[in-house]
């Protein structure tokens, strides 16, 4: 395990660890916009540059593995000046509209601009101008705010295995885009939205519903399937306005389109909130006790007349493991039949 010194602090890290990760383990912060711990190191934004003794130019800490005896300096006037220039360049090609940006307060670029105190910009010049299009209900792409960190491209390729987007064009005009500049046409898992460090990718249903600072977080489990992904509901004024997932969960923070975008049913006027009993071809609302009594009496009647094997139980994939366990127990022990199944095998 190589031993090295970062800003004078002794650190040892397993072979193959990057300087960035080694520094993180020692609680030494290094700014970055393009790094994501689960994605292939990229080295694109260049903010995580550090000085390594014996190497005559700064190296990106996200791509450089530690070596025995390495001496790293993560901050000094020259490095900070270079980082500041990089931020200035990024901001010179960024719409100055934090006031109305969904991401304000939760934006890594804004955060860095604040810490580096970048207000004047020596490099005022042309900005990329794009019209928003994308006729889908989920993902809003504002490519003028894109800093080309490529996290969205990598997550789509490496984690999701979809490859719906890639970099297109060259130079200043380089742009993340679906094939041939068409509208996004993918699974809409929204993983790209989750990793975007700026306001370039946001959820359409979040727009003006509330920024990050306005929300209360509630952790829960996704009700859609048996995977049981952990969700974090973002709640403002007692309404769910957004859903995310944390990295240290069973699903490592990844979600599918249902978990991430399928929350509008919560406040839907059509949502069933009480049991319904059908009488003379029409449903009427009932209490749980009344409904259970009805079920019990009917099941008993059927079992008496036709035997327990005349009854079968089919459980929903949206139930949790525990609920499904109880259900099969009920069918087997209480009803007395093995006719029990579950729809998630389909």
């Amino acid at each position: 395990m190589p031993n090295l010194r970062i800003d004078g602090i002794s650190v040892s890290a397993p072979e193959g660890t990057t300087i960035l990760d080694a520094a993180k383990s020692a609680d030494i912060p290094i700014p970055t916009l393009c790094h994501h711990p689960k994605l292939t190191p990229y080295g694109g934004c260049r903010l995580c540059i550090v000085d390594v003794k014996g190497i005559n130019r700064p190296v990106t800490s996200c791509t450089t593995p530690v070596t025995e005896g390495m001496e790293v300096s993560t901050t000094n006037p020259e490095i900070e000046k270079l980082r500041s220039t990089i931020l200035e360049l990024l901001l010179s090609d960024h719409p100055n509209d934090c006031m109305i940006c969904e991401k304000a307060g939760d934006c890594t670029l804004q955060e860095l601009a604040y810490f580096y105190g970048i207000r004047e910009n020596r490099f005022e010049g042309e900005r990329r101008q794009y019209t928003e299009k994308d006729d889908n209900p989920f993902i809003r792409r504002n490519m003028e705010k894109c800093i080309l960190c490529s996290k969205c491209v990598r997550i789509c390729d490496e984690i999701q295995g979809v490859g719906a987007i890639d970099l297109t064009y060259r130079g200043f005009n380089a742009k993340v885009s679906p094939p041939f500049g068409k509208d996004l046409n993918c699974e809409f898992c929204g993983q790209c939205v989750a990793v975007c460090p700026t306001g370039a990718l946001t959820g359409k249903m979040w727009v003006t519903k509330g920024r990050q600072k306005d929300i209360r977080e509630v952790d829960t489990v996704c009700p859609y399937c048996g995977c049981g992904c952990s969700l974090t509901l973002h709640i403002r004024r007692n309404r769910v306005i957004r859903v995310s997932s944390k990295e240290n969960t069973i699903n490592e923070g990844w979600l599918c389109s249902k978990g991430r975008f399928g929350f509008s049913f919560i406040n839907s006027p059509e949502r069933l909130k009480t049991p319904l009993i059908k009488e003379k071809g029409k449903f009427r609302e009932a209490s749980w006790d009344e409904a259970f009594d009805l079920i019990v009496s009917k099941l008993k009647k059927i079992r008496k007349k036709h035997g327990p094997d005349s009854i079968g139980g089919l459980a929903s994939a949206r139930c949790t493991n525990e609920e499904n366990y109880l259900f099969q127990k009920f069918i087997r022990a209480a009803v007395g039949t093995n006719n029990v199944d579950h729809c998630a095998r389909l």
């Binding site: 903010l47 360049l89 990024l90 010179s92 042309e126 970099l167 060259r170 200043f172 005009n173």
Partner: peptide, 21 residues
């Protein structure tokens, strides 16, 4: 160089554009 930059890294993508301007 500006039009042939691949666009991956910030200084080359935006920096050469500003130099050119």
């Amino acid at each position: 160089t500006q039009s042939e930059s691949c666009g991956k890294c910030t200084p080359c993508r935006i920096g050469t554009k500003r130099l050119l301007e």
